[in-house]
């Protein structure tokens, strides 16, 4: 049943991309969907884990918050880059990561990297090594809030 969902998602994305709906191209589309489905099955990813699916759905309200963080930190980094004499204070520190699933950890690490000014350079279950352009990034509640929000996506 879950594999059937994967098939539907693949077909929908093919239809969204193609824009051509005559017989020959539709048959090519069906062939490519089956091809991709076979490959997904072979690497064991054809059935989407229901917990991951839930996480993906929960990401929808998380993204606007992330977008705001991204814009804020983009402005900070742009200011650093355009100042006549670059003065920065880079620092590397480990921060706790409370996610249980691999997908949660990946989301957290990606969110940290996606906000310019902070960059995750190593991710292990339970902690994330972060390189920051300004050591002040570690001071506030920024990371613990992001961590809490991403963990909230998991369940």
């Amino acid at each position: 049943m879950r594999k059937f969902t994967t098939l539907i998602v693949l077909t929908a994305s093919w239809l969204a991309w193609s824009g051509h709906y005559d017989g020959l191209l539709l048959s090519f589309g069906a062939a490519s969907v089956l091809c991709v489905f076979y490959l997904l099955n072979r690497i064991g990813l054809a059935a989407l884990d229901p917990r991951s699916a839930k996480t993906f759905l929960k990401m929808v309200p998380y993204l606007p918050w992330l977008l705001r963080e991204i814009i804020k930190s983009n402005i900070d980094v742009a200011k650093i880059i355009w100042q006549p004499k670059i003065s920065i204070d880079p620092a590397v520190r480990e921060i706790p990561a409370t996610q249980e699933t691999a997908l949660g950890l990946v989301t957290f690490a990606n969110s940290v990297t996606l906000t310019p000014g902070t960059l995750s350079i190593n991710a292990t279950p339970g902690s994330l090594t972060v390189h920051a352009l300004e050591a002040a990034a570690f001071d506030g509640e920024g990371f613990s809030e992001m961590d809490r929000r991403v963990t909230g996506l998991e369940n």
């Binding site: 991204i70 814009i71 983009n74 980094v77 742009a78 880059i81 355009w82 670059i86 920065i88 880079p90 990297t113 996606l114 906000t115 310019p116 000014g117 902070t118 960059l119 350079i121 390189h131 352009l133």
Partner: peptide, 23 residues
Amino acid sequence: GLGLIRLPDFFCRSHAGGIMDSL
């Protein structure tokens, strides 16, 4: 692009790469 040129070391330059990806 300017950040890629101006920032002092590899790890700092990675931040500049992120600007183009996101904003």
